[in-house]
């Protein structure tokens, strides 16, 4: 499913002292199959944007609010807002938002805090039951839950009857993710999936997302402010700042704008920092900003410029 947003705006608390424009004329396309990163500070609009994607923020009602103001004569009417996720037109009131939510899975920050059922099986099955039109048999549920738990790396037999509250932090997060992907959404959106984890935990979560991207969900959208995470994993990334989209580029090109990103108060990945520091010293390394490629390019440069004695490169 392709995600297209054009001229999307959103205001919180309109006409009050707390009025804040969360999104200002955002246009952004996410192609099917992408591992897409969304970067920005807290309050940059990135969370507001992703909440539109499965209708948690309903566009029709907010659109109506803007449309009240009829343009005066001679004024150019504001451009038409477009928001489409695959076949779903999110600007249309009549859109089947339930069907949309089934196709767009959403994992919130600290998803383990949304666990509630008595057993892991029941918790994972929650979404499955909610979204199916007819009543599922126990066998159908068991099969789907088993598949979801296994893909997130948990043993079904061992886990299914446990209380989700007795698990370790990392396990809880996996169960929570299983509870979202159990309906096999085509698009999976995750808000800071690695937040609060230790470095090893972060690494495991990112590996899990790649596995899901390969085997389970066609498109993965990750909201993150960890630039290393973005540069290592994403095929493309959008940078949000103060409600607007500043860049939509593959990391390879995005992090060439290291200075501009720093000016926006954003970090750059370590590899980009190293490249900048090296360039200052006359060493030009042209890499795609993944750790692996950086190491390879540095070693190649080293080999080409003398390298180790006896090296024939």
């Amino acid at each position: 499913m392709r995600i297209v947003a054009e001229h999307l705006s959103y205001v919180y608390n309109p006409k009050s002292p707390f009025e804040t424009a969360a999104l200002k004329d955002v246009s952004l396309t996410i192609e099917e199959g992408e591992f897409f990163g969304i970067i920005g500070h807290t309050g940059s609009g990135k969370s507001t944007f992703v909440q539109h994607l499965n209708g948690l923020i309903r566009l029709p009602s907010s659109l109506r609010r803007y449309k009240k103001k009829k343009p005066k004569k001679g004024e150019i009417p504001p451009p038409e807002t477009v928001l489409r996720v695959g076949e779903f037109d999110l600007t249309d009131k009549k859109t089947d938002f339930r069907a949309l939510r089934k196709s767009v899975g959403m994992v919130f920050q600290y998803p383990e805090y949304q666990l509630f059922a008595e057993t892991v099986r029941d918790d994972v099955a929650f979404g499955l039951k909610n979204f199916s039109a007819e009543k599922l048999s126990d066998e159908q549920i068991d099969a789907a839950v088993r598949a979801a738990l296994e893909v997130v790396g948990l043993d079904y037999g061992e886990m299914k009857d446990k209380s989700p509250f007795d698990l370790s932090g990392g396990q809880k997060r996996r169960v929570a993710i299983a509870g979202v992907i159990v309906t096999r959404p085509e698009v999976l959106v995750l808000d800071e999936p690695a937040a609060g984890l230790d470095p090893l935990g972060k690494k495991e979560v990112m590996e899990l997302l790649h596995k899901l991207h390969r085997e389970w969900c066609k498109t993965v959208v990750v909201v993150s402010h960890d630039m290393d995470e973005i540069s290592e994993n994403c095929t493309k990334a959008a940078v949000f700042s103060e409600g607007s989209v500043r860049y939509v580029l593959p990391p390879k090109e995005l992090f060439r704008h290291a200075d501009e990103l720093t000016a926006l108060g954003l970090d750059v990945p370590l590899t980009a920092k190293l490249c900048t520091a090296l360039a200052k010293r006359g060493v030009e390394i042209d890499c795609d900003f993944t750790t692996e490629d950086f190491i390879g390019k540095v070693l190649a440069y080293w080999a080409a410029h003398g390298g180790r004695k006896g090296d024939n490169a």
Binding site: L274, A277, L278, R281, G282, V298, Y301
Partner: peptide, 8 residues
């Protein structure tokens, strides 16, 4: 960066 620059 300094260390790498020294090697090349």
């Amino acid at each position: 960066a300094e260390e790498i620059a020294k090697c090349v």
